[in-house]
Design a protein around this nucleic acid. Structure first.
Ligand code: FES
Ligand code: FES
Lengths: 144, 144
DNA sequence: ATATTAAAAGACAAAAAGGTCTTTTAATAT
DNA sequence: ATATTAAAAGACCTTTTTGTCTTTTAATAT
């Protein structure tokens, strides 16, 4: 459903938000990659993109690393997914027509659109903080 | 959401079922590719796969081509998607954990699973005939 | 039987996604 | 000021997806 890139992005962001708020510190790419079991350099590139979009913050140098403010905890999953896969994600036609158009629908439009819209609603209503909270509680997991 | 391969597959199947039942004839790959606006040889390969899985039928030679019985009209979208993308499609964890596991869920499992399940239900309940009927009515379209 | 036809099969190639490694830049502790 | 540190940037590679082209196989009309 999501690209690998998106999967790593979301897992990394949840980890960073949780950890950097817990210890009020910055967290390095090496630790992130280890903890979420993702390829280190690839994850670094993804975080560069998210950093440019100000979804995550970073500082270089000693004691540097990635961190997020509590304001950034209000960022929605949709913001992350859009930053990676582009602004049109979960907007297109299921059968690849040039656009999803009510007035000229593809054969599965009626069946598909409600589901796609639920997905979009879910991504719009879910923020990083709520997910990080569940992680801190220990009721959800980022690996295995 | 679906791979390009799946998109072409579904569009091709709907076209073939509709056309081959309407005129009680076989329909060639050239016509299919033109009518659904897909790459001809690529579409041919996809239909080879679907043909091996007996989702569509074909005969070689003069007046040959692809066709589908009315029994094949009862085939579900899920059968097509599985034939192409494998049997585990829409079963995995949203965040790429090794499996989607209730007892060890990822942070978005609660939000994601109901949507994924709706998708699976939709694909299970939608058959080719119902889509082809809509196409024949002229209420839906395969191109643009 | 043979020529014709159309799908099947297979070799290739381009593009995108996923991933690795090295060099550069900038922050900061000393 | 300088050495150290860690992210940013960029070159490069691998795999998968998507797509093209040619050859082979098999059906059938003649
Ligand atoms: S037109 Fe295809 S999903 Fe809306
Ligand atoms: S565990 Fe991730 S979706 Fe179920």
């Amino acid at each position: 459903m999501f690209s690998k890139t998106c999967e790593y992005a979301i897992r990394a962001i949840i980890y960073i938000y949780n950890k950097s708020n817990l210890c009020d510190c910055k967290v390095g790419i090496k630790e992130i990659a280890t903890e979420i079991q993702s390829p280190e350099h690839f994850t670094a590139k993804i975080l560069q993109v998210l950093s440019r979009q100000e979804i995550v913050s970073s500082v270089k140098g000693p004691n540097g690393g990635f961190y997020m403010s509590s304001a950034q905890g209000q960022i929605k999953l949709l913001d992350i997914v859009r930053a990676i896969d582009g602004p049109r994600v979960f907007m297109g036609c299921a059968l690849g027509l040039s656009q999803c158009d009510e007035s000229r629908p593809c054969p599965i439009h009626t069946e598909y659109k409600p589901i796609r819209d639920k997905m979009l609603t879910m991504l719009t209503n879910t923020n990083v903080e709520s997910l990080a909270t569940k992680l801190e509680e220990g009721s959800v997991f980022l690996v295995k």
